[in-house]
Design a protein around this nucleic acid. Sequence first.
DNA 1: TAGATTGTTAATCGATTAACAATC
DNA 2: TAGATTGTTAATCGATTAACAATC
Lengths: 207, 207
Amino acid sequence: MEQNKKISDSVIKRLSLYNRVLQKMEESAILRVSSAELARELGLTPSQVRKDLACFGQFGRPGVGYNVNQLRTRIQEILGMASTVNVAVVGAGKLGQALMAYPGFKSHGFKIVAAFDVNPDKIGRVINEAMIYSIDELERVISRDSIRIVILTTPAGVAQAITDKLIKSGVKAILNFVPVRLNVPESVKVHYVDLAVELDGLRYFTK
Amino acid sequence: MEQNKKISDSVIKRLSLYNRVLQKMEESAILRVSSAELARELGLTPSQVRKDLACFGQFGRPGVGYNVNQLRTRIQEILGMASTVNVAVVGAGKLGQALMAYPGFKSHGFKIVAAFDVNPDKIGRVINEAMIYSIDELERVISRDSIRIVILTTPAGVAQAITDKLIKSGVKAILNFVPVRLNVPESVKVHYVDLAVELDGLRYFTK
DNA sequence: TAGATTGTTAATCGATTAACAATC
DNA sequence: TAGATTGTTAATCGATTAACAATC
């Protein structure tokens, strides 16, 4: 069974990818899948797929493989995709607004329910059913909508101060597009999406 | 000296982060820095900083540390930041247009010089000095502007076909926002930015 | 000189891959 | 039964951390 060790971020991200592939297979009415097929689809090794899944119990049958529907259901349980999770965007600039309109979150069970900005011209506007609030409303709306996950796209200068406020309001995880390292307590998780750094990696490769 | 082993992506990304910190220090007229200070600034260990830098030679002086300006200059050489690199955005939807307007690329030596889309309403528009071209112009413009790095934000259905075209046109690296695994030859590098998967990771953490 | 800090080697840790008995 | 494929243990690989002699 293997279980009870703590699961790494990489495993969770791959689980999310398995789920996507399984969803496609289900649409194509495919009933069974082997670790080898999943691996090929995602550019992994069969061993890795089996090991990832084994973190959470036994889903497959030797000689047969995995039941597509059953495996997908179980992964969605593990990832907590059953109920939709509310997310807020903080900083409704071009990038923030683009993320508010991004269609890819829905199928993963996320809904952007609010955004925040300081610009009076933006406040009150609605994008994709979510309203842009004044940053002064942060605490109130975060708590009203039980928002635990936030996408941060503010200017660099205010990112830390706003993060402090977010954490006070009960936010537990931040997807951070701001090129600044955030100081947060251990109980809060930050994922960094640093686009310029990503491009730096690509440029180095092309030399 | 350590050198001549192949350098991992993680090392290159950290180099890019060191560069950012060093730039700030230079603005504050700080002349010297130790691996311990750099490490603290970025949440790493001093060992790791020294090891990363040692991949490319000896920059520091025992008992003294690193010369800020000298180290930054050297890192920019390593990363190839001396001359600006042309980048194209393929798929000028909301996300693509937001990335065209993103101010953070410039300081890293990137310039988005062109975008591509199929929508006739968008074609011909100019955002941040870069024009949106018809996708039919792909080969011509990519080659005209010597574009080797592309940011991909197309619909999922056309991502692979367009990627094939890009590679034929000479593109060597792709920053891929489309939730699809791209099939590319070994000589081409793809970095995936999968926002829904990132959020899945955060949601799992908050449970 | 004494204290600080490097570059580098060795030890540790974690993640990936290979191997294989169990079993459908 | 024979072939396929799992779950799991062992081996490998790579990345991070610790330790320390060299040296400013």
